[in-house]
Design a protein around this nucleic acid. Structure first.
Lengths: 206, 206, 206, 206
DNA sequence: TTTTAACCGAGACGGTACGTCACGTCTTGTG
DNA sequence: CACAAGACGTGACGTACCGTCTCGGTTAAAA
């Protein structure tokens, strides 16, 4: 039966010995997240995590092989932050500009730093990347869907327009731009909207 | 006079004492590049660079404040690798698929690792990102230009089609995909070509 | 009654619950002895003892407060090794030299190492020292007795010569010499015999 | 020439680089000695030495491979403590009893503990034992010489009596007794004097 | 028979110290 | 002054044991 199977997996073949204290795990992950936000991935040390979690280094190394894996788990378990409410600016272009500006701001902040810091770790562990992605996928979808639906209602876009390119192309271009050492400014936002996103929305046929 | 001005800048207010040995600088940068390629940005240590360059740490720190800046300089001075020759597959779609597959391969290799490793450094120093970008910009432009020109010649695209979206969007989407822990495989290449690039090429009007 | 008292002490106020498994105790002591011989007192860890005895650390700590006490018990229960057969060299001097050379060899080997390793523990627990001593006391007495008896028979010593100084002074001097970082060689053996032991045997009147 | 040879040895082939700071070495050795006296060999940690010497572990490990060697050096450089003044009790037996009682007290105190703690280290490095010995050799000789000289003056011993057995046998027997877990008390002191030392002094002919 | 209380293995836990590594700074001698 | 060599204080690394503490599961005497 599936239920008992799941239970077995959850208990993870625990045979003998004192069972691991799940609370320690949570405390450690929480401490790791706090430190990630405060000092960044590079400057975060396992020792500091142990101190903040009132744990010991041994307990951390018993569970995770290293910093990357710990951070990966921490992010996987992180509850999503607050939602972004898409402001209705009255036009498709305005809506897109607004949301892209918000995205630029996010990438310039600590979240962007975290993502960059994790770039190396993601290469080693794709699952970490998926965890990162899954955190934002739903909200990104909602945002794009809402903007396109409004534009359709306004008559700016044909019904059944595919909104998926927005969430795929916009962050990618922004990331690339950032990696090129160029500013994520208003000018680039307009370029992105006028030359890439709006053309794509008009041309794509699902 | 411009000439003397340049000279002054080059000598950088050199008043007395032994002048800096330019050869040391080159040796250090070369050693840094070698180590970058061998062990990656994270695992590369200044100490190792000094040993390989038969230099001393002091000489390195006299010139660069830290690892990021040293690596930035190293990459700036790196001569571009061999050019990529775009194969003529007979169709726009085939050409795009070929070049994107090549790009995917490059990102999976050490060059991709280097880029990820430098992500953090780029955030701190946009100039490093520009240096990275400038290395590849020209070749990327040439490639995109060639593909579009051929497609125009074949009649697949109208004359004067803007090729810039290709070099902007494709790497960005690939990077995003990689950071999401998802595979850069044939399937995604086709998705990219059919749903993003070709529609963009057809719709964009400069 | 003395018998019930002893019984009570042996059972050590055992009221309810599963009684201790005597076999575990033996297995642990045996493992401890093996490890002592293999790696020495300092390098021996309780964890290693537990592993080798297929025991758990808790079972060890339930019985002994620490390493020193465990080792003390282990040595107490150790069966003495093989006896030393004193060769009859035909003279008191020859016999003494032979047995002292044998003692030197023993101190240079693992037994000597064990003794040194336990020096600290003995200071904390004199009973451990007594246990160590009692292991060798009988054989030392026999050896000294035999040598002196032979010498008396040969007419080298007067009847009723006290043999106790031999077993008291010789090991002490040897230990001191070893602790002084000087070699336990033939030369010192001769010095010990000619200047200390033989004079003592001739002069002591019980 | 011998002088330049010594100089070369002192400078120990120092070619390039910043020379080692001799003051650090002294500070570390001093800290080690303090801690040895305070907490004993076993409980002394390299970390604590580093803290007290306001040094770093790296600096310590750069010079010494481990704790044993550090302690060995520390003791080698230690200036001898205060001299023991032999009280004139009016008789050879009284003088011997006094000095042996003083020796027993010393062995029961921290100096004895240090010696036991170093027993293992001495086996590995005889030079350490010699260093330990050389610290006490001179004073031991003086003490024994003084006692015997007084006894000779009193007419208790013949002129030119060899005093060397005292300093050789007495500490050895005491050490052995201590290692046997038996008390170094008045009773044993009398035994040592009456049965071993005085007979030896009377019988030995250099 | 059922309880009950201790034993036993296994191993998690908070600690402490280990010995190594790289950091960025400094202090030599030699050009 | 530049430069190599390398010592220095700092601090994190990952490991090994420490002695304590839970677990699930015996095991034998007491109820």
């Amino acid at each position: 039966m599936a239920e008992s199977e799941v239970a077995t997996i959850e208990e993870e073949l625990h045979k003998g010995g004192r069972p691991r204290d799940e609370a320690r795990e949570q405390a450690i992950l929480a401490a790791a997240l706090e430190l990630l936000a405060e000092v960044g991935y590079e400057a975060m040390s396992i020792e500091a995590v142990a101190v903040r979690a009132k744990s010991s280094k041994a307990t951390i190394y018993r569970r995770w092989p290293g910093k990357a894996e710990l951070v990966a788990d921490a992010i996987k378990r992180q509850h999503g932050g607050e939602e972004y409410r898409v402001p209705d600016t009255g036009s498709l272009r305005g809506d897109l500009l607004a949301v892209i500006q918000w995205m630029f701001d996010a990438m310039a902040g600590p979240d962007g730093g975290l993502m960059c810091g994790l770039a190396v770790a993601v290469r080693a562990d794709p699952a970490l990347g998926q965890a990162l992605e899954s955190r934002s996928h739903e909200s990104k979808t909602k945002i794009a869907e809402a903007i396109v639906a409004r534009a359709v209602a306004r008559g700016e876009l044909p019904a059944r327009t595919d909104f998926s390119p927005i969430m795929e192309v916009a962050p990618g271009c922004a990331l690339m731009r950032a990696m090129s050492g160029q500013p994520l400014d208003r000018q680039y936002a307009e370029h992105l909207v006028d030359r890439i996103l709006i053309p794509l929305l008009h041309s794509t046929r699902p």
